[in-house]
Each structure stands twice: as structure tokens, then as C-alpha cells.
Amino acid sequence: MLFSKFALAAALITGLSAPAFAADENWARVGEALGKAGTEMPGGVYRIGLPRTDIKATLDGVELKPGFALGGWVAFEKMGNESMMMGDLVLTSDEVNPVMAKLMSSGIEVTALHNHLLRNQPFTMYMHVFGRGDPVKMATALHQALAESKTPLGSATSGSSQPQAAPATQQRVDLDTAALDQALGRKGKDNGGIYQFGIPRAEPVKDGGMVVPPSMGTAESINFQPAGGGKAAITGDFVLTAKEVTPVLKALRENGIEVTAIHNHMVDDQPRLFFVHFWGVGDAKKLADGLKAALAHVAVAKG
């Protein structure tokens, strides 16, 4: 008898399986275990941002804001008596192996490891993780793994969360955001001075037969960071089926947008998806038009 990926993963995760998380689950317990509070998203997803505010990185003379290109995260979704967890951890080169060792010893899967950018200093890697089981136990395991890095966190000890740094002062996005909205056919949002778009795919995305919501990393992600004088730096990733990859690459390159990585994020996704990361600096409206040309080759949900 063949086991599904989820059944096998549940059997392999030592210490992550536990009695059912109560129907009236308190996601705050998960945030406390990880050492950082999250936000309840549409679809019953609890997402915790893990920006690397400790890293001062630059690329092509642009200082990369944490929410622009260094924004790690983990997200939990209730699945029956358990929860599914996915995440993307931002790590420096010397942090990769210690963090991976801790994750794997706890039964959390590492499903991808790769770059997102080129030429950024310091160089960062991005580690995708997956787990299924009790969310508090998974959050505790994640905290222990991230303790091998300098990722800013509080304490995972119950009742003793350390104070978090005060949130940065909200910055106005110094761009013609209406023009960007018009070009991309969507309404973006201001996230600490970064203008962001999350565009869901038309078809549902599944992993091991379970639906993975856009808030767990399956949306087309586009970020604009103002660079002054109507210019911007852009980065993000397109979430593509196999037949969409080459047309999107051509559209990006024809519009002066650099392709910086092509890879998987999941290992049992349906449909099989490829993630194309990009980078560009220039006139924000022209870059938006280039991204629009690429999106024309992607099956995205209607706005």
C-alpha cells in the first residue's frame, strides 16, 4: 500500500505529531512558540513574517529594505486534526547548514534551497520548509532551528516573550502607484514604503492533494522599492507552469528585466510549478509595463 506524501511526512516527523489542535485554536500560542507574532490571513492561514532586519544588503547600488527582498516568512494552515506549515527562510551562507541540520533533526522537510538575487552583498540564500503536525510543536522546532541564525526573534519560552523592536515608521511610497495599478491590472498595497502586488493563479494550487492558498506563497509576487525621481527597483517571483516559463522569460528580458533564478519551491505540487525570480532598476512605469507583458503569458485569476 502506497502512502501519500502527507501520511509519510507525518510518520517521519518525530515529536511533531500530537493530539488534535483544538477547534478554537489560539494561533497566539504558535507565535509565542516561534518567538514572533503573526497575522491571521484569509482562508484560515496564520502567517508570521521573518524579515532579516539585521542584514544591511545592497545590490547594484540599491540598499535592499527587508520587506523588499529579505522578507522570510512561515505560514500555518489548519488541515483536519493537524496543520500544514510552509515557509521561506532568508539565511546567510554560513547559516544554511546549521539551520538545515536542526530542521531535519526535528522532522521538518527542506524542499528547496536557492538564491533569489545576483550580486547582492552580503549574499543570501532562501530555504523553503514544509511540515505537517501540531503547529505549536512545529513552531518550537522552527525557533530552535532559527536560533542557529541571526534571524530576529523573541523567546520561545511560554509567557516570556521578549519585547520586539518597535515597528519602523510608515513611509510613503514615492511612486505613481495609480499608474502601477493600471499597468498591472491590480491594486497594490503599501508595506512600509514598499509597493507590493500578490496576484493569485487562476487554478487552485495543491501540495500532496491539499490546497495551498496564495498567502502561503503561490501568488505572483511583485515588489517595487522607490529609488527617487520616478525610478524603482523591482524584485519578486512569477509562479508558472512548464509551458509558461519560456514566454515569461522572453517577455522579461525583452523589457530589460533580469531573470535571476528559476527553480522549485515545493516537491509534490499540482500542477508542477516553477518560480522565476527577477530584478530591475529604472523607470517604474516602464518596468511595470514589462511585468505586464510577462503576466500576459500567465493564467492568473481575474482581478
Rank of each mutant, 00 (worst) to 15 (best):
G154A: 11
T140P: 01
I257K: 01
K285D: 09
A293P: 02
T157N: 09
E32H: 02
Q196H: 08
G280V: 06
G230C: 05
D94L: 11
G35A: 06
F68R: 05
Q170R: 13
L118M: 13
V211E: 15
S4F: 09
H277C: 10
P213E: 04
H116D: 09
M216A: 02
H265Q: 13
W279M: 09
A101H: 11
E203Q: 15
K292M: 05
K302F: 07
K231N: 15
P122K: 10
D88S: 12
H128P: 08
A293S: 13
W73P: 00
G256L: 10
S83I: 00
A141V: 07
G256C: 09
A9P: 00
V99Q: 03
G185K: 09
L249P: 01
H114W: 09
Y195W: 11
E63S: 14
D190E: 11
M85A: 11
A168G: 15
I234Q: 04
D237T: 06
K250T: 14
N191K: 14
V298P: 01
L16V: 12
G280C: 04
K102R: 15
S221I: 10
K5Q: 11
I48D: 06
L50Q: 04
S93I: 12
T241W: 00
P214N: 05
S105K: 13
K150P: 00
M138A: 03
L2G: 07
A145H: 04
A261F: 11
A233K: 00
M104T: 15
V74S: 02
G256N: 14
F274S: 15
K78P: 10
P167W: 08
V205A: 12
A101D: 13
A233F: 07
E220M: 13
T246K: 13
F68A: 09
F21D: 08
L103T: 07
V267S: 06
P98M: 07
A9E: 11
L8K: 12
V212Y: 03
Q164K: 12
L184H: 02
I257N: 05
S4V: 05
R186C: 03
L295H: 03
P226T: 11
G188H: 09
T157S: 10
D24R: 12
M86W: 12
E254I: 02
L252Q: 05
H128Q: 11
G72D: 06
Q225S: 12
Y126C: 02
G61H: 11
P66H: 04
L146N: 03
Q121H: 08
D134Q: 05
L295S: 06
A227R: 11
M100V: 12
G107A: 09
K187P: 00
G31N: 06
V173E: 02
A242I: 07
P271W: 04
G159N: 06
S160M: 15
K102F: 04
R253W: 00
